[in-house]
Simulated assay, not measured.
Amino acid sequence: MPKSKRDRKVTLSKTRKKGREYKESLVNLIRQSVEDYNSLYVFTFENMRNLKFKEFRERLKSSSRFFLGTKKVMQVSLGRSASDEIRPGLHKVSKFLHGDTALLFTNLPKEEVVRMFNEFEEPDFARTGSIASEKVELNEGPLEQFTHEMEPFLRKQGMPVRLNKGVVELVSDFVVCEEGKPLSPESAQILRLLGIKMATFRLHLLCRWSPEDFEVYEEGLEGINDSDVESA
């Protein structure tokens, strides 16, 4: 009987950021998942929120398994070319593993996976460096949403405020952020205080592999070639 490619030993000693044992363990877990689950997806994410993603993983715990490990190690696990892939067609999956991407192994029907990913959307407060989706400007006058104890803190965020008979008051119009420009730490903090959420945590499916077929979901990605795969 031919020896299974999944049992092939892989040397990962050249990489130093994480221990060799961790990398070899990740390789083995991914290769075992190829055998244990019906299909494999690569997905990408924007505005990742760890707590929300943990909740999403828990919902699929009984039928699926996620991997957000080192991309190069995940590529090695699946195979980066037709000559070293562990199952036919898996090297095509490796070509999508770069940037903010991860793996999902699952036994769920394709239609259900697509529906869950399309429906997943979690608004949240934008972080420093995020691009403002709109201009936010506060007009001169009282800011009754803030208590008087917050006046010193608001001044530290650059807001031209003062106390007027115990009420926080803007002494002039103030632009919190401009549409299309990165948020400063102060702007991000003020938006949070105002309750304005400019970030949305989303997940996007890129491709799907199964022993029967391979399909790409995102338009324009079909043209990815072997040179796009990260070198190990």
Rank of each mutant, 00 (worst) to 15 (best):
I131W: 00
S133D: 10
E134P: 10
K135V: 10
K135H: 11
V136D: 01
E137D: 03
N139W: 07
N139E: 13
E140I: 13
E140Q: 15
E140T: 13
E140M: 09
G141L: 03
P142Q: 05
P142Y: 06
P142T: 04
P142N: 06
Q145H: 08
F146K: 06
F146E: 09
F146A: 00
T147D: 14
T147P: 02
E149L: 09
M150I: 03
E151G: 02
P152W: 11
F153V: 10
F153S: 11
F153W: 11
K156E: 15
K156C: 07
Q157H: 11
G158F: 08
G158H: 04
M159I: 08
P160N: 04
P160V: 03
V161H: 12
L163F: 03
N164C: 03
K165F: 09
K165H: 12
G166N: 06
G166P: 01
G166W: 12
V167I: 15
V167Q: 07
V168P: 03
V168E: 02
V168K: 02
E169T: 15
D173M: 04
D173N: 14
V175D: 00
V175G: 00
V175P: 01
V176C: 00
C177D: 01
K181M: 11
P182E: 07
L183G: 07
P185S: 00
P185H: 05
P185G: 02
P185E: 01
A188V: 05
A188H: 06
A188S: 14
I190R: 02
I190F: 06
I190L: 06
R192D: 02
L194V: 03
L194I: 07
G195N: 09
G195D: 07
I196A: 06
K197L: 06
M198G: 08
M198I: 02
M198K: 15
A199C: 08
A199M: 04
T200E: 11
F201D: 06
R202K: 15
R202C: 06
R202G: 04
L203D: 07
L203V: 01
L203Y: 05
H204Y: 15
H204E: 10
H204N: 08
C207M: 09
S210G: 09
D213A: 14
D213L: 01
F214C: 03
E215R: 13
V216P: 07
V216Y: 08
Y217T: 12
E218P: 04
E218T: 07
E219L: 12
G220Y: 09
G220I: 05
L221W: 15
E222N: 14
E222C: 09
E222G: 12
E222L: 14
E222I: 06
G223R: 14
I224P: 03
N225S: 10
N225P: 12
D228I: 13
V229P: 00
V229Q: 07
E230W: 10
S231K: 14
S231Q: 14
S231A: 09
A232E: 15
